[in-house]
Design a protein around this nucleic acid. Sequence first.
RNA 1: GCUCCCAUCGACUAGGGGUUAGGUCACCACUCUUUCACAGUGAAAACACGGGUUCGAAUCCCGUUGGGAGCGCCA
Length: 485
Amino acid sequence: MINKEIRVRYAPSPTGYIHIGNLRTALYNYLFARHTGGKFIVRIEDTDQARKVEGAVENLIATLKWAGLDYDEGPEKGGDYGPYYQSERLDIYKTHVDILLQKKKAYYCFCSAERLTALREEQQKQKLNQTKYDKRCLQLSDEEVSANIAKGMPHVVRLNVDPSSTIKFKDDVRGDVEFSGEVVDDQVLIKSDNYPTYHLANVIDDHLMKITHVIRGEEWLPSTPKHVLLYEAFGWDVPVFAHLPLLLNPDRSKLSKRQGDVAVEDYRKKGFLSEALINFIALLGWTAGDDKEFYYIDELIKSFSLDRVNKSGAVFDIEKLNWLNAEHLRRKSDTELIQMLRDDLKTSKYSGNEYSDEYLLKVIHAMKERVSFVQEFYEKGSYFFEEPASYEEAALKKRWKEESPAILSKYSEKISTYENPVKEDFEKILHETAAEMNVGNGNVIHPLRLATSGVSGGPGIFEILDIIGRDKTITRINAILEKLK
RNA sequence: GCUCCCAUCGACUAGGGGUUAGGUCACCACUCUUUCACAGUGAAAACACGGGUUCGAAUCCCGUUGGGAGCGCCA
């Protein structure tokens, strides 16, 4: 065990999208592997024929790539311990289950689904401690079993659990955990369609792929005794487990679709930066112990350790994610920001327009401290991309005075004498206008802001005017005078 | 119902026998800015409860309560 290379895996089932909780699991596996210099493996758990979803694996890989979680072995990449799709490892499970059958650690069961349902209902009615299979088929003689199989009777293979046993295992986040064999059901290992169940395939693959640490969600804790029993039945070393605290809805139930977005894809579509999402979910259940909140992934790798993972569930609070997104966005370079804005613009209603880098950069500088998302550059700063369609009601009420039209006309008039006014000119003219009209600067600034941007907030007025330029300023002044006549 | 897990501000968390129980998000106020934001300053805000151990418990132990997960031929 000493000096053995650390190998961890992320083992999703391809159901169409990555749940945000699963991304966190993948992230912790990734961080642990990278921190320790170990290997991070991706394995596709596609043993449920009924739940197969077309394109799910591609989506999964794309999402991992977007998140920046590169893996060492897995689909599309290969590795020494493949195949990395469970559906391509069926013969492996078959040979292994035969060993269990031979050792009498597992047995064939011919009970029908109806009998099982009836049994469960009966047990529930009797308010028995737990519902579990009654081991009836264990009584079958070898001859009966062979005869049944020869007849083509549908069957499964079950794990033969000794109720008198005690199952103990080590969990790196929870310490020592103990279960009584009494409460462990004779788990189905091979389904009647000949596919293995998760429990069987998972244990065999983890062993064969030399997985040293099983890092997964807490929802797996109750089935871990089954897995331990399987390792023992095979005579294999049991890996170290680390059951991660659950990600929670605001009402503290397990994070679910009903109470918001759970697909990583949803957050991506909303414009969240992968860096921000990664930073955020890393802190949901883990802390370095200091007061650092802002992390890039390489910093996470450097500080991550399993022993600082929390035990209790963490509510997914979108507010903090929003904040982190803004923080990450603000630290991007101009070049990056221009590119991101361009890409985003392509899918916006301004997709037909052409903008120079110089222009976009001005917008970015003006808006950088005011946005949390890339798309907000043109949503909150729409006036850099089109004329205001309407004027903010409250601001109008507060700032639009009887003399405003005259003031704006004066401003417009003065500015038209300039060939190419710059920021300082716009300011100078403002002071002149205020003086000549015998009003305070505010009486010019606010109506001007409304006319050119339509809203009361935003960058400094001279910066706005400088960006949109003389002609648009004049056009917009004329427009508001016309509209508010 | 049973099994297991968990319990510090609204949220994420630090602390883990002696602390004015610290930080971050959100919220509020002030400063800066004739706007908004950023930034800065400040405020408000928590050890679930009961026993025990101890000179001393948020911290260790037990119990209670509360919450969660799991109890499939799904993963």
